[in-house]
Design a protein around this nucleic acid. Structure first.
Lengths: 197, 197, 197, 197
DNA sequence: AATGAATGAGAATTCATTCAT
DNA sequence: GATGAATGAATTCTCATTCAT
């Protein structure tokens, strides 16, 4: 079950799109097969099960994302620059794995209870370490406001980034970097005009 | 099928919790019935179908929410105060209809294609009008920064508010008003410390 | 379970109409209750079960019909007059028990295998004795053509009479006696014009 | 859902037999599947629904029957010969589609209200046109008795033909042509012996 | 007598999956 | 690699029936 890896990738991309659009449970194997141009039974030449497709989609994406976060964290930047880099990296991942991010966002909560998808909870912990740690470091260093509820801020930031996968369209008018810049400007400086303060 | 409205409400609340936790499609009628303490078939004494439960959950919530928004918009406040009121109202709704909000967040995208759930798309439009309009008014009035991409900002603000339903627990340590205040402080003033700027 | 016999009769008439229109299996108890203006559960104050309603409808009708046939047969008429009397009596029964006849026609074939409805098969035998015997007597007496396949003729006559229940409307433009006359004229003399022969 | 048309036909024949014997509503999909030697769910590989099986059984039969009638009517025969040909054609159809005819007879009345089965009412109209028209033509031409109630006669003739499907067994002792001959002799000339008249 | 909530058995249907070809 | 027929378990839903009020 390891032949022609491009075909696998193609099929997984198709499956990811359908999962993202309809939801994993609402997606039938037949629907994926239709979208991919073969019959439902034929998908089983490539994958063990519908669940293993989901598994491969999510784990491939998370591996890449966490590697990206590790690189950022290893760079030894200051808190503000780290946040900027994490946000930018996140929007880049959304750009490359939009469907996978959308699936992760929608399904990971209830999937992570199954042993097979235990790595989703692990990934969430690593996110938390990365973001929350940086925010705390920034407050300590005076980069971020001392009166922040760091945990609450972390949740707001984390969610807004991921939920963007539900409306982001690769190849649209905004590049991931531009979106990251806009978002960072809002989160870091606020939307209120300074002249008023 | 109109008597004992408290029983209906009870059952709908149970159903909403399960839908929010598992996802609509992944939820079996039997699971709802188990949680409510009756047999699956007995639910059909109260509701036509699983779908009509979902429908009633979502439409009840949206009716109330949109009424709340209308009240805010009719108050004739300035842009900044309107945003504050919308955010606060939203967190209050999350406090009262957490499950419904979570379901709306997760399922409305693919539901709104079905004629029965067309009102979900309508509601989204009315949200957009409310938020986007206020942001534009605020930029014009100099309340908000002129260099914002208003459309992008609208999405970020909207998503961050609603996505809070996925972690918020009514009766937890933060009241809705407190969360709204934190959130507004982040969005309006930014998280960066002013001394640095 | 014997109170107010008029109410019983009313309810049975309603049930018979619905059974005749929709078919016994396709008729729900709720449908009968709706038509009778009470709730499904309330029917069980009057009847043990849906099946016992059917039973009472059919057996009441058959008792009356067979009594009528017995009277005709006991009158000692000649074969031709007996056939005329049986046909007239049959159309009179259709006039009075249209729904029951229609149900009998549609459902008796598969009901008669159940012990409870064994009397349906008995009734069929008594019909056969009455009609077939009279036809045979008539052939022997020279009243009916000698070249008839009596068994085939019996079937044709029997079915045409009963199936009339599916289009007959009591109170319509033809009285049962008139229909009987027309039918007998066709069966006895034929539709071909005599001048041509 | 178009391959192996023989399998489809086989399954439809089985279904038709069961529908005819038990009635459509009283027939479970499982019963058909048992009779056909597969599992209930597997029928859905071939057909959308129980209803679509019924639909296909009835429409196939009616298409063939109406084509047969059209051929007869197009032949330009006299009224008496047309009636003879229609009756003979009908008994041939009963011979070939006994189950379908029995189902049509039992179920069409209440099915024709559903849009999907609207063609049943159409077919009934075309029957009426064919039979009633010929009878009227025959009365006008002096072939049939002038004192007939043509409409009533039409009903008797029509019903007697179709109801034969409830007792006819293909391959029994009477060929369809023989039954037609007996039936025509009864209807055209009557069963009364001429000597008596 | 009637209501309305509930039961429980079974109905049609769906769907992931298997497998001979 | 692909097909298409079949499986079997589960799912939504229906409905006759019961029963406390």
């Amino acid at each position: 079950m390891r032949p022609a890896p491009e075909r696998r990738r193609e099929l997984l991309d198709t499956a990811a799109e359908v999962f993202a659009a309809q939801g994993y449970d609402a997606t039938t194997v037949r629907r994926i097969a239709d979208a991919a141009g073969l019959l439902a039974g034929s998908l089983y030449h490539h994958f063990d099960s519908k669940e293993s497709m989901l598994d491969e989609i999510l784990s491939t994406f998370l591996d890449e994302l966490l590697a990206g976060y590790d690189t950022v964290l290893a760079a030894g930047l200051g808190p503000r620059e780290t946040i900027q880099a994490l946000v930018t990296e996140s929007f880049r991942e959304i750009d490359r794995h939009r469907a996978a991010v959308a699936i992760f966002q929608k399904e990971s909560r209830h999937l992570q209870d199954q042993p097979r998808f235990g790595y989703l909870a692990d990934a969430r912990h690593r996110f938390e370490t990365a973001w929350l740690g940086t925010l705390e470091r920034g407050v300590a260093a005076g980069d971020f406001r001392a009166d922040l509820d760091v945990r609450l801020t972390y949740r707001f930031v984390r969610d807004t980034v991921w939920v963007a996968a539900s409306w982001y369209r690769p190849g649209g008018q905004h590049s991931p970097e531009e979106i990251a810049r806009q978002y960072l400007s809002m989160v870091l400086e606020g939307i209120a005009s300074r002249t008023r303060t």
